[in-house]
Structure formats: C-alpha cells, structure tokens
C-alpha cells in the first residue's frame, strides 16, 4: 500500500489514473520556466517535493553516479516506502579534459529521483517534470526507448528506458529489480537526469561552460572551469599512486571490519566501499591499472558494496 504521498483523488480505474499533476502548484507556465542551470535544479526540486519526495542534499563522499548515493542503493532495500530526490555531483576522473571539451567533465551533476514503491503514474509524473522545466511536448518528440540498467558494482539491475527528446537521451528511467544481489520487497522507480546535458538542450547551448548558471550573468564556466582544469591536472598528473593504493587498502579493510562487527554498521561500511570505488577510479585515470588488475579491483569493490547492501537489508528486515 502506498503511504500518504500524493493529494490525488483515489484512482477508480487504471485509465483515470493517467494524467495527473498539479499544473498550478508546479509553476509550468511560461513566466516561471527555468532560464538557468540553478533554475533547472530548483524547478526539479520543487516539482518532486510536491510529489511527496524528501529533498536531500548531495552525499558528501565522491561517487561515480547519483545512483550510488545510499539514499538510493540502501533505501531501495527492505520493506519501507521511501521517496526522495537530490542533486548528486558525480566524479569520473578519467573523463576529465582540462576544461577543453565542450561536453565532457570529470565532475558533473545528476538529479536523482527514487520512488519506492513506484507509483502507478510515475511515467506521467516524469513527463510532468519535463513540462515543468520548459520542454514543450507539443513541439518535441518524447520517446521511451528500451534500455535496461545494470550496475554490477552494487549487484543491481532493473528494466526501463532511456528517455529521448528529439533523439537525445535526457533521462534514464528504471524499475529496480535487484540491489546488492537481493530481490526487492518493493520495486522502486528511479529517474536520473543528466543536468548539464539537459540544461544545454533546454537552453540551446553548445558548450557546457557557456550555460547560464543563474539569471544574473554568471556562467557555468565561471563557476566550474577552473575546477575542471585543476582536477584534471591532479587526476592525470599529480595523484600519488602509491598513497592512493594504500588508501584503497585502508578503505577496504575498514569496510570489512565494520561488516564483521557483531552488530555490523552497514552505513559507514558502505561509505568506505564508495571511497574504495573512487580511489580505484583515480588509479584508473592514471593508467596504472592493467586489464587483469582492473578486473580484480572491480571485484574487490563489488564485494564491499554487496556486503554492505546485504548487511543493510538484513537489519531492515529484523526491525
């Protein structure tokens, strides 16, 4: 049963459940459509808050994708309903281009929505969010194209689509089926918006650094360009390989120790799994990982993440 999330009329037939979102409450008229990167984020937050989502702030450990936030990976386990949305910076050190590529960044933002269990009108809610950010669906062709999602690192997979707007992928839409290698009590619907790419599309900008960050003349480049240059330089040239390897070992040991406790601590254990994952990405960016070692590192991270997920799920069932 859904908990009290939406102020919606009780659906009587499946067909009446279809077109439901509150236009008035969600500022979808032209005057309030976002015109900047931060406006886009604020609009999405407001929209999903109105759907009953808890709006979280970003997780404070480096992750490679918004999905890895414990609010998604761990909260999708167990029998408790959970709806949340958040912006998550994602770091992919190997994708850095010293601020010279108009599309590629080593640090970028994803907007993540998780609704557990997935409401029956999640597709309509999602389409409503596109209206809210100013995509005119009369003019633009929105399509749900098969794309199943899998993240072996956390033993997770689901079925869904990539959502196309005029042939461009604007979101990933997934119904989780397993997380941490475990079948789920309740299926979650997960939405991921690649914010920079979406913003470039909505604001018709070809170079990410030219995106308007706010409505007062500040660009994305002014905020982040220097960070891209310095972080790329660090990732590719100055990171201390030996120390990173040692830190990886430490994170792995810490995670295992936390899981081995009589009363395991899956939340801090999972954080250490994420740290190990990021450290591996740093090593990978330096090109010091051979293909065989690569497989081995990935397996080690996977074991940590899965172990944490299992411990979390076990404690969720007990309470």
């Amino acid at each position: 049963m859904y908990f009290n999330r939406l102020h919606l009329p009780h659906p009587t037939s499946p067909l009446e459940k279809l077109p439901i979102w509150h236009k008035d409450a969600l500022m979808t008229d032209a005057a309030t459509k976002p015109t900047s990167f931060q406006g886009l984020i604020l609009t999405l937050q407001t929209y999903w808050a109105a759907q009953g989502c808890v709006i979280l702030q970003p997780f404070d450990t480096e992750v490679g994708a918004g999905t890895l936030h414990p609010a998604t990976v761990l909260r999708s386990l167990g029998p408790k309903p959970w709806n949340c949305a958040y912006v998550q910076p994602s770091r992919r050190p190997a994708d850095g281009r010293y601020g010279e590529n108009p599309n590629r960044l080593q640090h970028y933002y994803q907007f993540q929505v998780i609704m557990k269990p997935n409401p029956e009108n999640l597709q309509e809610l999602y389409l409503g969010s596109l209206d809210a950010i100013g995509i005119d669906r009369d003019l633009h062709d929105i399509r749900f194209v098969e794309d199943d999602w899998e993240n072996p690192t956390v033993g997770a997979w689901g079925l869904g689509w990539e959502v196309w707007c005029d042939g461009m992928e604007v979101s990933q839409y997934t119904y989780f089926q397993q997380v941490g290698g475990l079948d789920l009590d309740l299926v979650s619907g997960e939405l991921t918006y690649g914010l920079e790419r979406l913003a470039m599309y909505v604001f018709d900008v070809d170079n990410v650094y030219d995106l308007p960050y706010n409505d007062h003349g500040v660009t994305y480049g002014e905020v982040f360009h220097r960070n891209e240059v310095e972080q790329s330089t660090y990732n590719f040239e100055h990171s201390d390989v030996e120390k990173i390897r040692a830190k990886f070992e430490f994170a792995e040991a810490e995670c295992k120790a936390l899981l081995a406790l009589e009363n395991p601590l899956p939340l801090p254990a999972y954080e250490h799994a994420l740290k190990a994952s990021h450290l591996f990405n740093l090593l990978d960016a330096r090109g010091v990982v051979s293909p065989t070692q690569r497989q081995e590192y990935i397996k080690r991270v996977r074991d940590l993440a899965k172990g944490s997920a299992e411990a979390y799920a076990a404690s969720e069932t007990v309470t």
């Binding site: 049963m1 269990p117 079925l159 119904y175 789920l184 009590d185 309740l186 299926v187």
Partner: peptide, 8 residues
C-alpha cells in the same frame, strides 16, 4: 524475454 515486477 525479460519481465519485471512493479511496486508491491
């Protein structure tokens, strides 16, 4: 070929 569960 592949099927899924939804919600509860």
């Amino acid at each position: 070929p592949k099927a899924m569960k939804s919600a509860a």
